[in-house]
Simulated assay, not measured.
Amino acid sequence: MDNKPQGRLDATTFAAVVHSAPLISIDLLVQNEQGEYLLGLRTNRPAQGCWFVPGGRIQKKETLDAAFLRLTTEELGITLERSQAVFKGVYEHFYQDSVFGEQPSTHYIVLAHQLVLPTEKVQLSVQQHDNAQWLKAEDILADPNVHRYTKLYFNGL
Rank of each mutant, 00 (worst) to 15 (best):
L64M: 13
H93E: 15
N155E: 15
Y108C: 10
V126E: 14
D97Y: 07
F94K: 14
R148K: 12
Y91N: 02
L69M: 11
I78K: 13
Q48M: 11
E36P: 04
A132P: 00
Q123T: 15
E102G: 09
F52L: 07
R82Q: 14
V99F: 08
S98A: 05
F100Y: 13
K61H: 08
L111M: 09
G49E: 08
V86T: 14
D139E: 13
D130T: 02
P118Q: 10
S105W: 09
R82N: 03
H93M: 13
V126N: 12
I109Y: 10
A142P: 14
P118A: 10
A47S: 14
L38Q: 01
F100W: 04
R42M: 11
D130W: 00
W51V: 10
K61Q: 09
V122A: 07
Q96G: 15
H129I: 00
K88I: 01
S83M: 02
V122R: 04
V90Q: 13
G77H: 12
A67N: 06
N44Y: 04
E120G: 00
A137N: 04
V99S: 05
L41C: 04
D139V: 00
F100S: 06
L152W: 06
T150N: 02
E102W: 08
R70N: 09
N44A: 11
V110C: 08
Y108E: 15
T119H: 10
Q48G: 02
K136S: 05
P54K: 09
E36K: 10
E81W: 00
Q127S: 12
L135D: 01
L115P: 06
V146G: 07
Q127K: 14
V116F: 00
N44H: 12
I78C: 14
I58M: 10
F52T: 09
A85W: 01
T150I: 07
D143W: 02
K61R: 11
L69E: 14
F154Y: 12
Q127I: 09
S125Y: 03
D143R: 09
A85G: 03
G101Q: 07
N44V: 13
F68A: 04
L64T: 02
D97L: 10
F68H: 10
K136W: 05
T73V: 01
T119Q: 12
L124C: 04
Q103L: 13
P46G: 05
